[in-house]
Design a protein around this nucleic acid. Structure first.
Lengths: 88, 88
DNA sequence: TGGACAGGCAAGTAACGACTTGCCTATGCT
DNA sequence: AGCATAGGCAAGTCGTTACTTGCCTGTCCA
């Protein structure tokens, strides 16, 4: 499994997590549009590669249906953070 | 203020936070030794530069006493993470 | 007062990461 | 069947970042 810290390091990936937190189960194109509305201008491939990183980190899960690929947020890997450095 | 996500992205910096979570108020040399015991082999300057990044992110605070510089952990900036992406 | 110890500064290198570009595959609709 | 849509693959570019190297400053103590 990948590295959640590296996954969180990029602002575009954080915006993707934000978009998924607002609406789960979005496709690649829908997510790209969500980023465009937030002022970011990534290409489709850029979004795709970012989603790969998020998936490897276990923060996003993918389910395929026909020609669509839906993305779901999973924040559970983030539990490691407050467990590792307890927050008062 | 800097970026906590970028600060967390590097494994050496995370090891520094681990070392400070285990024992607060360590000097640069003490922290370097702590990393050496964890199998990392950073130079003094590398450690110094990592501490700068952590300080800019607000995760580490510094107090100077004579020729020593003590480093203290502050995990409060990490609160943003579970607030931004709620963890079930 | 001089030397050992703690740390600082700055320039250079090397590798990694984000992003693009071009082309390809697969599914659904008319 | 044919075209548009959703997505995939792979190589290449460019900027950032981690790390080194060399030298310098400041503090403490014998």
């Amino acid at each position: 499994m990948g590295d959640i810290y590296r996954a969180l390091a990029d602002p575009t990936r954080r915006a993707l997590l934000d978009a998924l937190a607002a609406a789960d189960g979005q496709t690649l194109f829908a997510l790209r549009n969500a980023l465009l509305e937030r002022g970011l201008t990534p290409t489709r491939q850029a979004v795709s590669q970012h989603l790969d990183v998020l998936e490897e980190a276990g923060l996003v899960h993918v389910r395929r249906e026909g020609r669509y690929k839906f993305h779901d947020l999973d924040t559970r890997p983030l539990r490691e953070i407050p467990r590792r450095w307890p927050i008062p």
